[in-house]
């Protein structure tokens, strides 16, 4: 069985799409990461800063821990535990998803403060 010309075109197209997609995300991301957004069933649950340590209980189903500038799903009551096994996220655009509980955790860019510094 040999590869046909169309097979190679298929491979190239898919690889190009994948690289393109990655570059787009790099373009959006790679800046100062900042805010952790938690959504449940498509609705906003809460926003938290990556710089501060938090332990967030999401609807009694998931526990998200923000520590050392990383967000990690610490506990979930779903059977597959895929979100718990997911590596901690910190970069802009990274996501942890818990499908059974419809929880989406996303990192987005920090909103720039309008003030450079505040002096008492």
């Amino acid at each position: 069985m040999k590869l046909k010309k169309m097979d190679l075109i298929l491979i190239l197209v898919v690889v190009a799409l994948a690289i393109g997609g990655m570059l787009i995300y790099r373009g959006f991301g790679a800046k100062e990461a900042g805010t952790v957004i938690v959504e449940v069933d498509g609705e906003a649950f809460g926003e938290y800063s990556l710089d501060e340590n938090h332990e967030i209980l999401i609807n009694d189903t998931n526990v998200l821990i923000i520590e050392n500038g990383q967000a990690n799903m610490y506990e979930a009551n779903c059977p597959d535990q895929i979100c718990v096994k997911h590596k901690p996220i910190s970069k802009n655009g990274e996501t942890i998803v818990c499908l059974p509980n419809k929880v989406v955790v996303t990192i987005t860019e920090a909103e720039k403060s309008e003030l450079d510094a505040v002096i008492d």
Partner: peptide
């Protein structure tokens, strides 16, 4: 299902 486009990541 998740009504979220973020996972296109």
């Amino acid at each position: 299902v998740l009504e979220s486009l973020n996972i296109a990541y």
